[in-house]
Design a protein around this nucleic acid. Structure first.
Length: 308
DNA sequence: ATGGTGGCACCGCCA
């Protein structure tokens, strides 16, 4: 099973690139962030031609997440958008002048940053191999708390603007809500893949200038604390499990001249798996290929392969 | 070098 995550920075602007990437890489799951498209304008027809199924939630201009999975890999089920917690305190996407205005409960902005689904890529195959002896001969390897396939949690974590801003507090709070979300809906023994743009470089080797960038909203001790707590709940960074090299980035700021060429980047996009699943991870790599094509995203895909 | 990129929407916001 191949799982990928890609912040596309507008799905419509990146449509040809995403379509060719799917065709060339054939992942069982592609989690996409920053689709920047309202649900009514989602380019469904283009993906219908590919055989990939999809679930998505977006809004105008900002945020937006989607999960793609091919028909042959089984159904996408148990789809849920956003958190299921109490009302949020801060209006995240509001302008600077109005950012302290109360946000409505389960706002569109929250919903378009988290999408959860369950997939079972081998269910059909196992049934076929079992012969037609019994329709119920398939026994899932992991069965806990109602998860009998693999749960995919795709997040686009708030960037945080500046450390002294309300938006940064919103980001810290967002990670805390995410931990509660995992705790409420799953067990650490479930097979969960948590992927997406986390807007955090976990360690010094994940950012091009750790000394000077320490304190940046994407490389900040307070954010690190929140991430660590979620990791301690039961996740393994499968990229770092396979690759210890510094300078392995998934994002290069467009505003920094020749950032990609000079490899002045950040590792902000991640694939985390619960321990039982991480043990089955056979490879994890960053695919910089799309950066050499026309109109690339500022992020680049990260891919993990599992013996599943 | 007092600017420089990119996307979307609208005349600015966000990354």
């Amino acid at each position: 099973m191949k799982v990928a995550s890609f912040n596309v920075n507008s799905l419509r602007a990146r449509l040809p690139l995403v379509l060719s990437w799917l065709d060339e890489n054939q992942p069982d799951v592609l989690a996409v962030q920053e689709t920047k498209v309202q649900d009514v304008d989602f380019p469904a027809e283009a993906f219908d031609k590919t055989g990939y199924k999809y679930v998505f939630k977006g809004q105008k201009s900002y945020n937006g997440v989607a999960i793609f999975s091919p028909l042959s890999a089984g159904q996408i089920s148990k789809v849920k958008f956003g958190f299921d917690d109490e009302p949020t305190r801060l209006g995240e996407g509001a302008s600077l002048a109005t950012e302290t205005i109360e946000a409505p409960s389960r706002s569109r902005k929250d919903e378009s940053r988290l999408i959860k689904a369950e997939i079972n890529p081998v269910r059909k195959l196992r049934r076929r191999l079992a012969g037609q002896t019994s329709a119920n001969s398939f026994e899932p390897t992991f069965l806990s708390n109602g998860v009998n396939g693999i749960a995919i949690v795709n997040t686009y974590v708030p960037q945080g603007y500046l450390p002294e801003s309300e938006k940064f507090q919103y980001k810290l709070n967002w990670f805390e809500r995410l931990l509660r979300y995992f705790d409420k809906n799953f067990k650490p023994t479930d097979a969960i893949v948590w992927v997406g743009d986390f807007n955090i470089a976990p360690e010094a080797i994940d950012v091009y200038d750790p000394e000077n960038l320490l304190g940046h909203v994407c490389y900040h001790p307070e954010v690190h604390k929140r991430l660590q707590k979620i990791m301690q709940w039961g996740f393994v960074d499968v990229f770092r499990m396979h690759c210890k090299e510094p300078g392995q980035y998934t994002f290069w700021d467009f505003r920094l001249p020749n950032a990609f060429k000079r490899n002045l980047g950040w590792r902000l996009d991640h694939i985390m798996a619960t321990k039982s699943l991480a043990e089955k991870c056979t490879a994890c790599y960053i695919d910089k290929g799309q950066r050499t094509k026309e109109r690339p995203s500022d992020h680049t895909p990260i891919v993990a392969e599992f013996a599943w």
